[in-house]
Design a protein around this nucleic acid. Sequence first.
DNA 1: TACATACAC
DNA 2: CATGGTGTATGTA
Length: 598
Amino acid sequence: MAEEQTAGAAAAAGPTGQGCSGQHEVLQAVPAHGPHVLGTHQLPVGAAASQQPSWQQYSSVFTASKAGMQNVDKEKVKRVVFEMSKDSAHFKNEQRKQAQVDARIAQLKAKAASISQAELAAHQKAADAKLAQLEAGRDLSRTWLHADMDAFYASVEELDRPDLKSKPMAVGGMGMITTANYEARKFGVRSAMPGFIARKLCPQLAFVKPDFRKYEAASVATRGVFKVYDPHFEAGSLDEAYLDVTDYCAAHSMTGEQVAAELRAGVEAATRLTCSVGIAPNATLAKVASDLNKPNGQALVVSSREAVMAFVHDLPIRKVPGIGKVSEQTLNALGITTCGQLLQQRGLIAALFSSISARFFLGAGLGLGHTQHGGDRGDEGGAGGGSVVARKGISCERTFANMSSSADMEKMADNLVQHLAADMESEGIESKTLTLKLKTTDFAVRTRAVTLAGHVHTAQQMLPPILKLLRAELPCEIRLMGVRGSALRRLTSAGDALDAAAAGGRLNALQRMILQGRKQQQRGEAVEQQQGEQQDEQHCSMVISYRQLAQDLAIMRGSMPSMKQRLLRCHMTCLMMKTRQVLSAAAMVRLAQMARAH
DNA sequence: TACATACAC
DNA sequence: CATGGTGTATGTA
C-alpha cells in the first residue's frame, strides 16, 4: 500500500513540515483562485498559504516520508536503527547490495564523462524527438482520481479497538510491521520496519496481529463506493484504487474535486475510515497528488499543460511511482533530483539509459501517465474483454528458522508445491516453467528455473523438477524457500454439466461462482486435517459478512436514495464475490434475493 | 530462456 | 532473539 510502504532499514522519517494531521477539507471545491490554491496543488484548509508544498521540504535521502512524522527525532531513529542492525546478516547483505549499486553508479559516471560534446548534442536531439512524440500523445481530456486509504490496516483495527486510537499501535509482529498508526509514526515507527526495532523506538508500542479478513471486508466496502464513480476502477491493492471519473463528472456536471470530496464522504460513510484522494489528468499524477494532503485530504493537479509542467518541475524524482531507492541514487549521481531536471538533462538520459528507461524518465519529466484503463495499451485482448490483464506467474514462498538439513528442505519443497498446486487449480491455470527460490542465511537470493516439455498443475507433476533444482543447490543453509509457476495457460477441466456449460462459455455469474466455490471446496477436502478449525473460521467469517452488511445498511439509511441504491448494489456484488468461498450456493442465492429486495 | 535486480504494496 | 509475501517489469547474457 502506497502510504505504508518503503521504509528501508536505514531510512528514517523526514519532515513534511505540514500540520495537516486530523484536519478535514471542506467538501466543496475550493474556488479556482481562492486563497488555498498555491501553485498548482491545493493545500489543506488551515495550512498557511505561505507554506511550501511538503515535498519540497524533505531530504531526498529519507524517502517516502509521511504525514504525521514531522516531529520525529530523525537522528535518534537513525541511531537506533543502526545500532540494532549493524551486526545482523541482513545489514551485511544490505551493504553488499549497496556496494553493487555504487559500482554501477561509478561505471555510469565514467561513461557520462567519456561522452563528447558532439555525442551529447546528438543524444539531446534524439531526446527532443522523443519528447515531441511523447508530447503529441499527451491527453488532458480525462479526469483521474487516485484514492488511498489512510493507515489502512491500523485504522481498521482501531474500529474494533477505539482505545488504540490515542496510543501508538502497529499492525504486525516482532518480525515485520505492515502498518503503523499516526501515534506510532511520531516515534519513527513505520511500515516495513522490523517489530523489534520499532519496540526499541517506542517501548509502549501496541502490536496487533494482522487479520486480513477484516481488511478485505473493509476493502470490499470501499470498492462498493469506488464503483459508483467508475465501474471499471482499478484496485491496486486492498487500500487503493485508480478511477477515471470523466464520465461521472460529465453526467453530473461536477468537477473532479467535487467528485473526490463526495467519494471521500462516501467511503467514510460506508466504512468509518478516511482516505486521501489525488485529482489529475492522468493516473500517475493522481497517485502523486493523493499523497500530498494525507491523511484525510485531497489535492488537485489542474488539467492544463502549464499546470502539469509547473507541478512536476520541482517534484523530487523519488515521488514518481517506479522511481525507487536505486533509481533515485543513480539519477542523483548525475545531478538530477527533480523531474524538471530530467528534462534539462535529457541528452545525458538518452545517452546513458536504455530506450525504455529513457522514455520512462522523459515521460516523468513531462508529467505524463496512463490516461486509459488497462495500462494505455489496446492489446492483450483476451476473451471476457478489456482491461483485465492475464497474470504472468503464481508463487508461494515462506521464511522460516534457518535450515540446513536436506530432509527438512525437501519436506518444505513438498509443502510449498502442494500449496502452489492448490492455488493453480483454484485459479484454473497450469504452468510450463517452474522456478525454485532460495534465500540463504546471509540473505542472498538464488533462483533456479526449468522449462518443462508441457504444462503442469498438480503437485505430483511439479515436485520432481523442483526437487531436482533443489538438490543441485545442496548443501546450503537457507532462511526462505519459494516455488513459482510461469509461462501460464488456462487449465480446461472436463466434468459435469456445469463444467460443460463453462467450456461452452454459457455460464451466468452465479454459475461461475458456484463452480468456483466447488473448486475451493475440493481443495479444502484435500487438506482434511485442517478442516475442523477452518470450518469454525468460515462460520465466523460468514457471520461477520452478514453483520457487515447489516451495518452498512444502517449507515446508508438517511443517505441520498440514488447513492444508497447504487452503493448497495455494488456492495452486494462484491460481498457475494468475497464470500463465495465460504457460502453455500443456497446462501448466495439468498444474498442475491436480499440485494434485489433493496 | 535463465537469472538477478528493482519496484510496488 | 529478531528484517515479509506476491507479482510485474527490465537488463543482460
